[in-house]
Amino acid sequence: MSKTVNVYFFGKKYEVPDDLTIMAAMEYAGYRLVRGCGCRGGFCGACATVYRIKGDKGIKTCLACQTKVENDMYIASLPFFPLDKQVYDIEKLGTDEKVMMRLYPEIYACIGCNACTKSCPQNLNVMQYIAYAQRGDYAKCAELSFDCVMCGICSSRCPAGISHPQVAELARRLNGRYLMPECGHLKRTVARVQNGEYEKELEELLCKSEEELTNLYNNRDIEE
């Protein structure tokens, strides 16, 4: 049997079972969530949450769907934070340093406080990926930011007003579009499809009886 703990949602006290996530505990307490809840699985970043344990000096951050309640948690959700997303045409961007300078110049105002990194619920090295973006090393920025769920907590803590998740999104797209090696076999297959090379075989397949198809399926060879 689970025990209960006291938690405070927006300052108001509730007693909840101690094995629930913050999100489930809010629901247990009677909240019907509309904002602050998306995937419920740690992928969408809708449930950004800030909390403090009574008596502790530090502010902590987490995803409410991924974090268990603790006794004396003072909890506030951050279902929206105004990030700045620049609009661009990916086909017209190069990959030199100037791209970031033009679209997100505020990254150069980073004062190195590292509050972003300390606040990331995914434990990413946010300040470091911003440093890579400043240097125009988009591949590195993409690599370090890959697990970002774009919850925006980092930006809420940033004195320079940087929209880290958007910077990282741009870096990843540049990396995927321009910097990662092109795929030869993909190109070849797309060409083969376009030339109609599979058309005849597929049409024949479509005309086969259920029995023939069943045979084909049951006797197909499977790659080790």
Partner: peptide
């Protein structure tokens, strides 16, 4: 295959080897 190409062109980072093989 065309769908994978379309996504790659939008910048989706598929896992690849250093010579581009998926």
């Amino acid at each position: 295959p065309e769908a994978i190409m379309w996504l790659s062109k939008l910048g989706v980072e598929f896992d690849k080897t250093s010579d581009g093989e998926m």
